[in-house]
């Protein structure tokens, strides 16, 4: 069920997730999205990564969503499928919500992490101002976005090494399946 919010209430909710509405432009942005996407514009790709970075937040010594090229995975997965339209609409929706947050043009990818998280939480729950997301596809978009980012990230052998997953084991199997691992 979509909770309809007023624009003002939305701004307050989104602001609550950050240090208030005093937005300072930080980090990120330029470093992102080096490899060109075949289905997203440069800006759309930047937006996907800005979401991916807060859905899968990693520490310095861990492979990041950029390191494992999550964007390339999403590119390959949704090219030529109806999911692409859902993504394009959703990414524009994220920017519209970001624009509601402050004065002047502001885009999702430019926001600090806390505000991106606050926006994504509302998209996930569908608690959005009606005019910010007329089609109501927010929760579905979030589900697919989250799902694809997780798939792209956790299918990477780099990540398997980081979390200690052995991955493919045929045709030998795991001969040590019943022995306690060395700590």
């Amino acid at each position: 069920m979509n909770l309809k919010l007023t624009r003002r209430a939305f701004i307050q909710l989104a602001g609550a997730g950050s240090t208030g509405l005093l937005l300072t432009r930080v980090e990120l942005a330029s470093a992102r999205a080096s490899a060109p996407s075949r289905i997203f514009s440069g800006h759309q790709a930047r937006t996907v990564l800005a979401a991916a970075e807060v859905i899968i937040p990693t520490r310095e010594n861990e492979p990041s969503v950029v390191d494992v090229n999550v964007l390339d995975y999403i590119d390959r997965e949704i090219r030529g499928s109806s999911e692409r339209a859902l993504f394009v609409e959703g990414l524009a929706g994220l920017d519209r919500l970001a624009g509601l947050l402050g004065r002047g043009p502001r885009r999702f990818a430019d926001l600090p992490a806390a505000q991106r998280i606050a926006i994504l939480k509302m998209v996930e729950a569908g608690t959005l101002p009606v005019d910010a997301w007329p089609s109501g596809s927010g929760p579905l978009f979030f589900r697919q976005l989250r799902r694809r980012i997780v798939e792209g990230y956790f299918s990477s052998p780099l990540v398997w090494k980081f979390i200690g997953y052995g991955g493919r084991s045929q045709f030998i199997g795991y001969p040590d399946f019943n022995r306690w691992p060395q700590q």
């Binding site: 859905i55 899968i56 937040p57 990693t58 997780v150 956790f154 299918s155 979390i163 997953y165 691992p181």
Partner: peptide, 27 residues
């Protein structure tokens, strides 16, 4: 199960730090 099944299925309700805190313990 593999990491994607855990992250998208069994832990499909969380994301961000909560998801990653869980997944760091995969092994």
């Amino acid at each position: 199960a593999g990491p994607i099944t855990l992250a998208n299925g069994f832990m499909g309700h969380v994301w961000g730090d909560e998801l990653m805190d869980f997944m760091r313990g995969y092994a």
